[in-house]
Design a protein around this nucleic acid. Structure first.
Length: 490
RNA sequence: GGCCCCGUCGCCAAGUGGUAAGGCAGAGGUCUGCAAAAUCUCCAUCACCAGUUCGAAUCUGGUCGGGGCCUCCA
């Protein structure tokens, strides 16, 4: 089986073949650290976290680089507003970013470079572009001459003439051609700056990614990722810079994730309709957010709403319910049970479990189809539940099947960053949520459970049902089992 | 205006030529004192029209509807 990935450059799914067998170099554009991250950032980072994890699962030795853009107009503007330095501001939001990503359960990239730590490489790269006649200095700024790069716009598949018609030179820029973009910007008073052959200044936005990727991954590497909105101009400009300087292919596979929409409209800072990760995590478990994002294909748009997150919560709890049940049943199973045979009725679910990993791989191999992969895992849950219904005559063979099924589910779940919590604990946490809203304490519920238990013991079902109904009215569901009564929020 | 994407069951969502995964919701059965969970059964011909093909949700053309990029943006 081969991995196929959709390459924005070709517009097709292509067979993935890394430059060096067994190794993958991957660069993903990180965030500009001037504010808290929103759910759109969460999606992009989770998507590439999955790419990272899946490649590792496929036994690739992956070098994953994700940068921090810590020098930029917006950072400067925001720092000025708050009366702190750009560095103070960016450090604050780098910390916030790290916290958010950790909360969402992302694996740490191999390298997380900062633009300001690569000024020397940036300057070297700009000099090289000037030497090659691809860039010019103008009043302390340096611009890239897009006309000199023939394949400019090959990624976004645009047309230079039409682009030029709409392009503008913003006041203060010293461009010869409106399409030229800044590699280096002369420092204005009060801005952070570094010495350069063109005077004090700072890097333009695009050049840092070219400099950092070549430093950490080499001139040519396998995968470059980012949100769709980065295709133009950011990635187009990276190509012009990197290929212009090296004369070699920059990136083999370009991967771009789709947007998060709100009410069918793109969510973005400029539209002001965004939700920050930290706000969302006040109401939803991080794993629910991850699950929600992975239930759609990474290139499709997804609509962010409470209803959709709520559905994800219910879907995820189906997995945890099954895992918890599995733990319980296996813990008390008679380990001395004889091997025994398998009834025909269980042939289908057992077959499902046997096929799980292969189906999972086949889904993920098809351009990281997490939605399909999760569908297969739901199938496995149903199969496990069906076998679990044989709880009372679990022979040794069935125990082994259940054990392996659980291990597979957890192992494959981990590739998606899911099911990492202890099932009983996750369910307990889930039960706690909403308790305050219902105006109840755990102790109140326990008291009523005891009262109801006594009523049931006396076969006073009227009183028992009254307690059940009263709690249900407040959103608390009582669950009876041979081991006693527990509860959860509806 | 230019370029591009999308329109699949009440909702979410897979599926790029071979006869519609999965989840939620809903109906009925089993289990349960009653419930819940679980399980079983049922529940879509793919916006519309016209083509290509033995065969199309999947290809082509058109219509309608939604969205994105072209300026900072994951």
């Amino acid at each position: 089986m081969t991995l196929r990935v959709y390459n924005t450059m070709s517009g097709k799914k292509e067979e993935f073949q890394s430059l060096v067998p067994g190794k993958v170099g991957m660069y993903v554009c990180g965030v500009t650290v001037y504010d808290y991250c929103h759910i759109g950032h969460a999606r992009a980072n989770i998507v590439f976290d999955i790419v990272y994890r899946y490649l590792q699962y496929r036994n690739y030795d992956v070098t994953y680089v994700r940068n921090y853009t810590d020098v930029d107009d917006k950072i400067i503007a925001r720092a000025n507003e708050r009366g702190i330095t750009s560095q103070e501001l960016s450090e604050e939001f780098i910390r916030a970013f790290d916290e958010d990503m950790a909360a969402l359960g992302l694996r740490k990239p191999t390298h997380e470079p900062k633009a300001t730590e690569h000024i020397a490489q940036i300057i070297t790269l700009v000099e090289k572009l000037i030497d090659k006649g691809l860039a010019y200095e103008s009043a302390g700024d340096v611009y890239y001459i897009v006309d000199k790069f023939p394949s400019y716009l090959k990624l976004s598949k645009r047309n230079m003439e039409e682009m030029q018609a709409g392009a503008r030179i913003t006041p203060g820029e010293q461009k010869r051609n409106p399409m030229d973009f800044a590699l280096w910007k002369a420092a204005k008073p009060g801005e952070p700056s570094w010495a350069s052959p063109w005077g004090a200044g700072r890097p333009g936005w695009h050049i840092e990614c070219s400099a950092m990727s070549s430093t950490l991954l080499g001139t040519t590497f396998d995968i470059h990722g980012g949100g769709r909105d980065l295709i133009f101009p950011h990635h187009e400009n990276e190509i012009a810079q990197s290929e212009g300087a090296s004369g070699k292919l920059f990136v083999k596979y370009w991967l771009h994730n789709g947007f998060v929409n709100v009410n069918q409209e793109k969510m973005s800072k400029s539209l002001g309709n965004f939700f920050t990760i930290r706000d969302i995590l006040k109401s939803y478990d991080p794993e629910i957010v991850r699950f929600f994002i992975l239930t759609a294909h990474y290139r499709s748009p997804i609509d962010f709403s409470d209803q959709n997150l709520e559905e994800s919560r219910i879907g995820l709890s189906r997995f945890y319910e099954a895992l918890a049940q599995l733990d319980k049943v296996l813990a008390k199973a008679d380990t001395n049970a004889e091997q025994g045979g398998l009834s025909d009725a269980l042939a289908e679910p057992i077959e499902r479990l046997v096929q799980l990993e292969e189906r999972f791989r086949s889904a993920m191999d098809d351009d990281f189809n997490t939605a399909l992969a999760i569908g297969h895992m739901f199938d496995a849950v149903r199969a496990l539940n069906r076998i679990l219904a044989e709880e009372n005559n679990l022979n040794g063979q069935l125990q082994a099947i259940l054990g392996k099924g659980r291990d597979d589910l957890l192992r494959l779940g981990d590739v998606l960053g899911l099911f990492g919590s202890e099932p009983a604990a996750w369910l307990a946490r889930s039960a706690q949520e909403g308790l305050a809203d219902a105006g109840l304490s755990e102790a109140d519920i326990e008291t009523l459970i005891v009262e109801r238990r006594d009523a049931r013991a006396n076969r006073d079902f009227a009183r028992a049902d009254q307690i059940r109904d009263e709690l249900l009215a407040k959103g608390v569901l009582l669950l009876d089992s041979p081991e006693g009564t527990t509860w959860k929020m509806k």
